[in-house]
């Protein structure tokens, strides 16, 4: 009985995994096909030639947009970790008048979707002269209620005696934050980092608005242009672009999945 149950479970799992992973496999397979193969509707390419990839890089400054995406994602991640952890620290380790109110203020930003502020933000960024600059793509995302909460949840698990012991040893807030809280919370910082990297790398609407010249485009927008240019004929090249753009985040996800799963849960529900 057990063997049958287990066997059928595996069958179900494999079928579902194939179904779910199919778009990714499909994109991967098509990226190696010639235009003719694509038109014939083949599933498996005849050979794994890299011509489409070379074409994708030549059709656009794809490499440049990849570098842009990488830098923007890394800067945003670091910035968000710094800004959010500072705020989370204040909420957990400093008892001050108005803490409740400020905390409520932070909560309320969760209720305001980014889209609701996008028009004035576009004007602001324009006025600041940040159009086509990394600043526009990174700085507005340094402070997030989500990141602050996630870290706050983890900071709260640090025994308050640790803070008291360091106070008795003569540590101020900043040194306690740097020497104890940050190293102790390494795992939750990694969680936030992974999540932030993924969302920044994948963001679409905002980069579309605030980048106008090709050299400052991110990879997602690059993909949009690739698709616009090659629309009718060159599906193989477009799919090569998809694979190139998806690989960094898939890698980050596969490597950091455990972290992400645990950390997101803690931040979200507890």
């Amino acid at each position: 009985m057990m063997a049958i149950k287990r066997g059928s479970l595996y069958v179900v799992l494999i079928l579902i995994a194939l179904l779910l992973f199919f778009p990714i496999i499909y994109a991967f397979l098509v990226s190696f096909m010639s235009t003719k193969e694509v038109l014939m509707g083949h599933l498996i390419p005849k050979s794994f030639s890299l011509t489409n990839y070379i074409d994708a890089f030549q059709a656009l400054p794809l490499l440049h947009s990849l570098i842009n995406s990488m830098l923007v994602s890394i800067i945003t991640t670091i910035g968000q970790i710094i800004v959010c952890s500072l705020a989370a620290y204040a909420f957990v380790f400093i008892e001050f008048r108005g803490r409740q109110f400020l905390f409520f203020l932070f909560v309320s930003t969760m209720m305001i979707p980014w889209e609701a502020s996008i028009i004035p933000n576009f004007v602001t960024v324009q006025k600041l002269g940040w159009i086509n600059h990394y600043a526009a793509l990174t700085i507005p995302f340094f402070a997030t209620a989500f990141g602050t909460f996630l870290l706050r949840q983890h900071f709260k698990t640090i025994p308050k005696e640790l803070h008291e012991a360091s106070r008795m040893a003569g540590l101020g807030h900043l040194s306690f934050f740097l020497k104890v809280v940050m190293p102790v919370s390494k795992t939750s910082l990694v969680t936030l980092g992974i999540y932030c990297f993924l969302t920044t790398w994948n963001s679409y609407l905002w980069p579309l608005l605030v980048t106008t010249d090709e050299r400052s485009r991110t990879a997602q927008i690059g993909l949009r242009q690739l698709h616009a240019q090659e629309n009718v004929t060159q599906w193989g090249v477009v799919m090569a672009g998809v694979v190139i753009v998806a690989i960094p985040t898939l890698l980050v996800l596969f490597l950091g999945q455990k972290h992400l799963q645990k950390g997101l849960m803690d931040g979200a529900v507890k």
Partner: peptide, 20 residues
Amino acid sequence: WSPSQRDISMVFQNYALYPH
């Protein structure tokens, strides 16, 4: 006086050891 000015040592119930 701040805690550190008092020149006092303290042992906590949960020991308050720095895990890292």
